[in-house]
């Protein structure tokens, strides 16, 4: 019977999560050929996206106030942050499949919070190479730009990377919460998540009003890479967003997570109410 004395021992709150994740990593890397293919294709996709920027900047010197060096830094921060979030949290967009297969009901039978279980139910190891592409762009971007290095700048970069990763992770979770209502239309949330990823690598100063409303404020994508770079390099920035806003990247993460947890909570309520 449920004797508390027999539990514990090798405990630690992370043990259940670690057990699942460790076995997921083993399972993914066990098919070596397939795994190598995934690693390679992640790099290729990253390179093609970089190539797009390069092709565009062959014809122009600057876009929206950013030259190629600056936009490389934007791409580096955005891609590193998004790919890291994708590695740890990206699979939550499989929620519709979990709902159809009843896997979520099984999560209810385990003594951990549902969202924590969903996030740790999988890890996409194949994205590490994509993070590598982002980091390379970031390092090159830092080297080719004229940056007055100081401990503050280093701290700023670390904070921005963490905050942006959290913003994208929150975006994934918010999308999952919405999918409780839109089981058949996960492409709709993908529009915001992957549109957000694409938007994050752009100079936000070129956006029209609808995009400013969507990716400037509602989903604070401009805060993940563009605004911090503008602040870091001391660029003029967009007229609708003063450059000091780049310091508010952590606030964007907090805002995204507030929305994400609300969306998740509402979604779970809807599911438990039988609307799923």
């Amino acid at each position: 019977m449920a004797d508390p004395a027999l539990r514990g021992g090798r405990t630690g709150w992370w043990r259940p999560y670690r057990a699942v994740l460790a076995s997921r990593v083993r399972a993914q890397t066990s098919y070596r050929g397939s795994f190598a293919l995934d690693l390679a294709s992640s790099v290729l996709i990253g390179l093609v996206e970089l190539a797009e920027i390069w092709v565009l900047y062959r014809s122009v010197d600057a876009l929206g106030g950013l030259d190629l060096a600056a936009v490389l830094l934007v791409f580096g921060i955005a891609d590193t942050a998004f790919s890291t979030a994708d590695l740890f949290v990206g699979h939550v967009d499989t929620l519709p499949r979990y709902l159809r297969a009843g896997t979520l009901d099984v999560f209810y039978l385990r003594p951990q919070p549902l969202l924590a279980q969903l996030v740790t139910s999988e890890i996409s190891v194949r994205r590490v190479t994509r993070i590598g592409v982002g980091l390379t762009a970031l390092v090159v971007g830092l080297a080719v730009n004229d940056i007055a290095w100081s401990p503050l700048v280093v701290a700023f970069l670390v904070v921005v990377l963490v905050a942006s990763t959290l913003t994208f992770a929150g975006l994934f979770v918010a999308a999952a919460g919405v999918q409780f209502f839109l089981v058949d239309a996960s492409e709709m949330t993908n529009a915001v998540v992957y549109g957000g990823r694409y938007a994050a690598t752009q100079p936000a100063s070129v956006w029209g009003k609808p995009l400013v409303a969507l990716f400037g404020f509602a989903v604070p994508i401009a805060f993940t890479a563009y605004l911090p770079v503008v602040a870091l390099l001391g660029l003029p920035g967009a007229e609708w967003l003063p450059s000091w806003l780049g310091w508010l990247a952590p606030l964007a993460a907090v805002w995204t997570w507030a929305v994400a947890l609300l969306a998740w909570r509402t979604g779970v309520r809807h599911y438990q109410g039988g609307g799923g």
């Binding site: 565009l56 876009l63 529009a191 752009q202 100079p203 070129v206 956006w207 029209g208 995009l211 969507l214």
Partner: peptide
Amino acid sequence: LVANVTFGFLKVSV
């Protein structure tokens, strides 16, 4: 459709 429209706006601006 929503995804295509979102990307449409992003492509147009850049």
